[in-house]
Amino acid sequence: MSVDCSNNIQPTTRPHADVPAGVFVVVPAYNEAPAIGAVLHELRAVYPNVVVVDDGSTDGTAEVARIAATYVLRHPINCGQGAALQTGIDFALLQGAEFIVTFDADGQHRVEDVAVLLSPILCGECDFTLGSRFLGTCVGIPPLRRKMLRLGVLFTRLVNGVNLTDAHNGFRAFSRRAAQRINLRLDRMAHATELIDQIRLSGLPFKEVPVQIRYTPYSLRKGQSTRGAIRIALHYLLGRVLL
């Protein structure tokens, strides 16, 4: 990838040769067999190092992933998305990753946007980039989901003291030194808020980058319900008190 440090980075799916060495894409997956195959094929067409962390799926996600992913890691039991992300990050660092991108397995992220997310880090502008669907565009977001995510943003502003436009987007990128400062201990979904804490505490610069989210019937079904979101907030606050 030739690094363009002007401010008009275009989404791209240029093939292998252009990708800087040491980019690892980490895909946590739990029971995503119907969707993950297509996602991995798209990713592998551009990025040579794709790490799937199968979080104890029972639907053969790992078998599907083995066809397309570079590396497949498997939690013997379901530990939660935060744990899967951390496993993927640890593994990528062990393999000498210089840049780590986290990407959802359900097809809601676009491969083109990985380059957009990486470019500020490649330019040395910052160490963390966070995908934001509200800076970018989102296709087919239901009104209730939009309101929930807005609440999530407010929650992050109150609890973490960080002003973001989209606090709960799994599409993120880290430089190596940034990834080394990440240690997610809240296994389940509350890790999104915990991660923002750790970014803030690391003192390293971060930036939100517009990305496009594709809401499909599949990804909506797999996403968070409103009740789930409340549980996540409670889990985070409890974890903060007890850990």
Partner: peptide, 13 residues
């Protein structure tokens, strides 16, 4: 979780 992570990384394929 730590045990699962250890096994997952050890047995990566």
């Amino acid at each position: 979780t730590l045990l699962s992570r250890h096994l997952a990384i050890r047995d990566a394929s």
